[in-house]
């Protein structure tokens, strides 16, 4: 009974981690770029929504609709004017730039929003739960998980069923040849990062409603997201969901044994998976 409950909570927590990871996975799949500021961008989006909620007095869900385009624009600009300049054979420059960006975002938030913990107000929804078979399931965790599935299905649809997705796949496979066919890889990359930032905003919504956040929590979110991407296999978006669930389940079981082991057991499972399956569970990209 306790076992099933822990398992269900873990799977639902995995939905949140999959949301953290989906944007990272998309960007990696298309341009082999790991954005070390990804976690801090999630936190930035959460603060942006908090600002909209506070100033306009709307619900966080409305704030999402306002903030998503803003974050899209931020992602587009970031890719177009900064990250595109450092893409290339050498892995060092993108790492340096995004690590620098991570420090910039974290400390700017610290100065403007203070180190206090904040939360997005969502009324009674936070504590609501549904009886689902033998276990009680929180409405917010369930909504998070379903959103994660929806986001991944949407990304999958864009990737394999639309003209834009065809361009994504083309520049992912071979940017030079794609360029010969009249695609501008750099514009495509900017769009991809923009879309990833929309996913980041959705992740930030659930992060902000479900738990407290402060400017310093970004790097830990990046690590969970990264673990989910690697466990799932580089470039596989459904694999990312599986990876998120594995981290989530590992954490809830760890916490059930001893609260101090929650985060640690997630990391240990990650290391274990990597030792057994160095390419992750469902690898797609080969490089």
């Amino acid at each position: 009974m306790l076992f099933i409950d822990t398992l269900v909570q873990g799977v639902l927590l995995g939905g949140l981690y999959a949301l953290f990871a989906a944007g990272l996975s998309l960007v990696f799949g298309i341009m082999r770029l790991v954005n070390l500021a990804h976690g801090d961008l999630i936190v930035l989006a959460a603060y942006l929504m908090l600002l909209v909620v506070t100033v306009l007095g709307v619900s966080p869900f409305v704030a999402l609709l306002i903030c998503a385009p803003a974050m899209f624009a931020l992602g587009w600009v970031l890719q177009r004017f900064v990250l595109n300049r450092v893409l290339g054979e050498d892995v060092l420059p993108p790492l340096l730039v995004t690590f620098g960006l991570s420090v910039v975002i974290q400390n700017s938030l610290l100065e403007t929003a203070s180190a206090d913990s904040r939360r997005l107000p969502a009324g009674d929804l936070v504590n609501a739960s549904l009886p689902l078979g033998p276990v009680n399931v929180g409405v917010m965790p369930l909504a998070t998980f379903l959103s994660a599935v929806a986001v991944i299905m949407a990304l999958q649809w864009i990737f394999f069923r639309t003209a834009l997705g065809r361009r994504f796949r083309a520049v992912s496979d071979d940017p030079v040849t794609a360029g010969l066919m009249g695609i501008r890889p750099k514009s495509i990359f900017a769009l991809a990062t923009g879309i990833a930032m929309i996913v980041v905003t959705i992740a930030a919504l659930y992060l902000g409603i479900r738990s407290n956040f402060d400017p310093a929590i970004g790097p830990a979110r990046l690590i969970y997201a990264f673990e989910a991407v690697i466990i799932g296999g580089l470039g596989s978006i459904w694999g990312t969901l599986a990876g998120g669930i594995i981290i989530g389940v590992a954490q809830t079981f760890g916490a059930a044994v001893n609260p101090e082991w929650q985060i640690l057991s997630g990391h240990l499972v990650f290391i274990l998976v990597l030792l057994l399956r160095p390419r992750g569970l469902f690898p797609r990209a080969y490089d």
Binding site: H267, F270, L274, L275
Partner: peptide, 28 residues
Amino acid sequence: FFAFRLQGAYFAVGTWVVAEVVRLCVSM
């Protein structure tokens, strides 16, 4: 042994995970 399985950026975050594991263990 663990991190050399990872390339480039993944090596970077992999070493970070190891540092987190060590920090959490030392905290106990």
